[in-house]
């Protein structure tokens, strides 16, 4: 079982094509990292998988455990087991974190079923403690006035609460100092299991010191141009992306 991205072409609605035949398979139990220079399509990839309405898929497919999710609304994708940790989480004034997460969990229940409040808070506090989030966080508005680090911790907290099958982490390391990075990474690592697959999108190798990927892919010009093991990330860190671009430019030999 896996999340399969098959020959994906996507563009901004009515605009420029950004993804050009991207192929990727994220198996349960595996963590894949996608790295790439600015403008290569990293964030577009995460938004297209989650179903952002600003983008349209012009060819290809995204299959979750064998089923295409392209016709599904973003909320249906989420309820089916997909999670996107945002690079820039939105601030929602007046809605408390506790109510927000409760609403997300309630959306997964059958009609007429209600979330059991005591269990909910027990679970919430346990996950918060793991991420070193203070208790007053529950009554604060979603991401409102949060530091970059707090926002990213909140993303990982939501992920831990919603227990997705597949998670896309979009530059979760950006805006984090080293301590926050360690905490957030520990939160992600805690979710590692044979029933969980993740796609970690990052610009820097630093995050991969803490979340060791099984595979590393290089995204350039809207498609995966190179794949390898964790060592590829180190190579990219020391050599940059130019050598890959040069390799691509070389004529293919017979």
């Amino acid at each position: 079982m896996s999340l399969i991205i098959k020959n994906l072409h996507a563009r901004v609605v009515g605009g420029q094509t950004i993804l050009n035949g991207l192929n990727l398979e994220i198996e349960k139990g595996r963590i894949h990292a996608v790295m790439g220079p600015n403008g290569s399509g990293k964030s577009t990839l995460s938004k297209v998988i989650a179903g952002h309405p600003d983008y349209e898929v012009t060819a290809g497919d995204i299959l979750m455990d064998g089923k295409s999710i392209l016709g599904m609304e973003p909320d249906a994708r989420s309820r089916a087991g997909l999670f996107l940790a945002f690079q820039y989480p939105m601030e929602i004034p007046g809605v408390s974190n506790a109510n927000f997460i409760r609403a997300a969990l309630s959306a997964r229940l059958a009609e007429g079923e209600e979330l059991e409040a005591t269990e909910y808070y027990a679970d919430l506090y346990e996950q918060m403690d793991r991420l070193e989030i203070p208790r007053n966080f529950t009554s604060r508005s979603v991401n409102d006035g949060f530091s970059g680090g707090e926002k990213k911790r909140n993303e990982v907290l939501q992920m831990a609460m919603l227990k997705p099958t597949y998670a896309i982490l979009d530059e979760t390391d950006s805006g984090l100092d080293i301590d926050a990075l360690k905490i957030v990474s520990a939160g992600v690592n805690a979710l590692r299991s044979p029933d969980f697959g993740a796609l970690v999108i990052t610009h820097y190798q630093r995050l991969l010191d803490y979340i060791t990927p099984d595979y590393v892919h290089v995204l350039v010009g809207g498609k995966i141009v190179h794949s390898g093991g964790p060592e590829l990330a180190l190579e990219l860190e020391s050599k940059g992306y130019d050598w890959i671009r040069e390799e691509m430019a070389e004529p293919a030999l017979a």
Partner: peptide, 8 residues
Amino acid sequence: FYMQARGI
């Protein structure tokens, strides 16, 4: 979109 991405 943020809310929808959480299943709401």
